[in-house]
Write a protein that binds this DNA or RNA. Structure first.
Lengths: 185, 185
DNA sequence: TGGAAAGTAGAACAGTTGGTCTACTTCTGA
DNA sequence: TCAGAAGTAGACCAACTGTTCTACTTTCCA
C-alpha cells in the first residue's frame, strides 16, 4: 500500500516467480526462487502460504500483464478490423523473441495433472478474459457470429504460440494473420 | 525379434511409459512406472540406461503410432481435398475424448527446459514428419504453395489440440476445418 | 526512543527422487 | 541337462523436495 523506495520481498518473489516459472517451468525449486528474489525462506511462506500459493499469485499477476499486452497490441490501430489484424503482427514479433517459450498458461495446465490444483482456476480465468476481449472486438466490428469467430481467432492465437515456440525461423503470426482476415470476413 | 507369448519387460515399460507420461507428465516417478509395468527396477536400467532413455524410447514409439493415426485419418477419403478436411473431423473427435490432454510432444518440450535433453530431438523429428506428411498431401492436391499451406495447416492442428485440451464442450476441430478449407483454396 | 512487526540467515526434518547393488529365480538353447 | 542370460524383489544411497523452526537484525511508527 504505502509506496516503497525499493520493492519488498513480496514484490521480488512475484517477479522472480514470473521469470523462473516461465523459463524453467513450475517445477523450479523453492531454493532457486528464494535465491533469485533475494528473499528469506520464511518470507515466502508468510506471504503466500506455500509454493502453490505463490504459483497462483504469479499467474494472477501475469494474466493482468498479458491482458494489458493484448489491449496494447489492439491499440495499434483504431479501425476494428485493423486492430485485430495488428494483433497477429504483434504475435509474430513476440514469438520471434529469443527466449520465447510458448503460452505460460497452457504450460502450467500441463504441469499439474491434478485438476483440483489452484493454478487451473487462474489459467481458466485468463482464457475467459481473452475470449471476452476477442468477442468485444468482433462485436465492435459488427461480426455476424462473434462467439464462433472468437473461437477461431483463439485457435489461431494458440496455434501461433505453439508453432512459434517449437520452430525457429518461421513466421506463424503472418500465416495466422491471413487466416484471421478470412475469419473477419 | 522372436515372437513371445506375453510381452516382455521392455514392451511393458514402453506401454506403461506411453500411458503414464501422457496422463501425468514426464515427471512421473520411476517407482510408478515400475509398478504400472510390473517390472523389476533393474530391467529399466538395463534396457534403457536411465529414465531419460525410456522417455526418448517412448516418444519414438509414440511418434510412429501417431503418424500412423494421421495416415489413417487421411485414409477416410480418396480425393486429396477430402482427405485433408477429414483429418480435422478426426481431430475434433480426438480432442473430445474424455482423457485427452493435448499434444504429447509440446508437453514434453515444455517439461524439459534444457534444450540439450534427448527428448527434444524426438519431438523435433515428429514435427518434421508431420510437416512432410502435410506437404505430401498438399502436393497431391496440386496446391500452389504447399510449404506455406502446410505451415497454416500445422498451425490449425496445434491450435485445435490446445483449445481442445483446455476447453470442454467446444468443437475446435470444426472451427479449424472451416479455416483449413480456405487454406486448401 | 522503544517496542512490535517484518525481514534475514540458515539449521533441521520428513518424504521423495533417480540410480546402484546384492541375492534369488526363471527361462532358454546348445 | 545344465550353464548362462534375463528377470524379479527389494534393500540401500545420496541428492533433492517443500516445509517448519529458531535466532538474530532491520525497519518503522507512536
Amino acid at each position: 500500500m504505502t509506496p516503497r523506495t525499493s520493492p519488498g520481498p513480496r514484490e521480488r518473489l512475484l517477479a522472480a516467480g514470473q521469470q523462473l516459472f516461465y523459463s524453467q517451468g513450475a517445477s523450479v525449486g523453492v531454493d532457486a526462487l528464494l535465491k533469485e528474489a533475494n528473499v528469506a525462506r520464511r518470507s515466502l511462506y508468510e506471504h503466500f502460504g506455500d509454493k502453490d500459493g505463490l504459483i497462483a499469485a504469479v499467474l494472477r499477476r501475469a494474466a493482468e500483464e498479458d491482458l494489458a499486452w493484448y489491449e496494447d497490441a489492439l491499440a495499434g490501430a483504431t479501425e476494428p478490423r485493423a486492430r485485430l489484424l495488428g494483433l497477429f503482427d504483434r504475435l509474430d514479433e513476440l514469438v520471434a523473441t529469443p527466449d520465447f517459450r510458448g503460452c505460460r498458461y497452457f504450460a502450467t495446465d500441463l504441469s499439474f495433472a491434478n485438476p483440483g490444483h489452484p493454478a487451473h482456476a487462474e489459467t481458466d480465468a485468463f482464457r475467459r478474459s481473452l475470449r471476452a476481449l476477442l468477442v468485444r472486438e468482433l462485436k465492435a466490428l459488427g461480426h455476424a457470429r462473434p462467439e464462433r469467430a472468437a473461437e477461431q481467432l483463439h485457435l489461431l492465437i494458440e496455434g501461433t504460440l505453439v508453432v512459434g515456440a517449437t520452430q525457429d525461423g518461421h513466421h506463424p503470426g503472418r500465416a495466422a494473420r491471413d487466416l484471421a482476415a478470412v475469419v473477419l470476413g
